[in-house]
Simulated scan of single mutants.
Amino acid sequence: MLHTPSGGADNGTAATGNGPMSIGVVLNVLREEFPEVTISKIRFLESEGLIEPQRTPSGYRKFSRRDVERLGHVLRMQRDHYLPLKVIREHLDALERGEEVRLPSLGRPRDPGEGEPLGDLLGETDSASVARIARDELLTATGISVEQLEEWESYGLVVPLPEGVYDAESITVATLVAELGRHGIEPRHLRVMKAAADREAGLVDQVVAPLRLHRNPQTRAHAEARAKELAGLAVKLHAALIQSALGVRLP
């Protein structure tokens, strides 16, 4: 829930009560929940058509309470669901038209300790291994181009299944690769992450492989549970190592 402060300044312009707010005041409001947000981020979301603040005769932006609430929704959907801006825009526009829509859970993050998939296609499946996504569906869900997908496939970041379709995790991967790209990290830079992930997956598979080959169905089911548990621990360790190396604490 966003709370509008009673005042603030930006280029000498203040906002009080529920009146128009300057971009500096909006930044202070949003930082209560989104400490990493910047003025550049707000301007970028405006350029992408997510908000349309009014302008004063001298060109300063003036944000309404509705603009701030919409910004909060956008940032929340990016943070909690890793949704691309195209999907977020369509979702918010549908809500404003009064349509009853359900927020897709593409790339929805979970607690790594749970060992669960990071994204389930539209929240419909219990396992990422069940969902299969056609190529055009993947492009639509992530908002990327055919050229981008082909480049990412060439680096092994997104891998189609033998049938030419993709698993549900491909949505998460593609969305995160696109987000990293907006920060200047190119797909070729991510090959080291892909290689590390493959090695970690191989280590987990080495541990659980004997259980998967067992005759007893319960033992095989236990193998899958063990694989999820180990994967969750590996993700936590990976994050902790990166934080330690950078000397930062992730939210």
Rank of each mutant, 00 (worst) to 15 (best):
L2F: 09
P5I: 00
G8H: 10
D10Q: 10
T13L: 15
A14Y: 02
T16E: 14
G17E: 05
M21K: 15
V26M: 01
V29L: 03
R31A: 02
P35S: 08
V37H: 02
V37M: 03
I42M: 00
L45I: 01
E48L: 14
E48M: 12
P57C: 02
G59S: 02
V68I: 14
R70H: 09
R76G: 07
L85Q: 00
V87W: 01
I88A: 12
R89C: 13
E90P: 04
L92G: 05
L95V: 05
E99H: 10
E100S: 14
E100W: 08
R102K: 14
S105M: 10
L106K: 01
G107V: 06
R108K: 11
D111C: 08
D111Q: 07
G115C: 04
D120P: 07
T125W: 12
S129T: 15
S129V: 15
A131L: 08
D136Q: 12
T140W: 01
Q148H: 00
E151A: 00
W152S: 01
V158T: 03
L161E: 13
D167V: 06
T172K: 04
T175Y: 05
A178F: 02
L180V: 04
R182H: 13
H183W: 14
G184L: 01
P187Q: 00
L190R: 03
V192Q: 12
A195F: 11
A196F: 10
A197P: 02
A201N: 11
D205V: 10
V207H: 03
V208M: 05
P210S: 09
L213Y: 08
Q218Y: 11
A221E: 15
H222P: 01
E224P: 04
E224A: 11
E224V: 14
A225E: 13
E229M: 06
L230H: 08
A231C: 06
G232K: 09
L233C: 02
V235G: 00
H238V: 02
A239N: 08
A240D: 14
I242E: 09
Q243R: 07
S244Y: 08
S244Q: 14
L246V: 05
R249N: 11
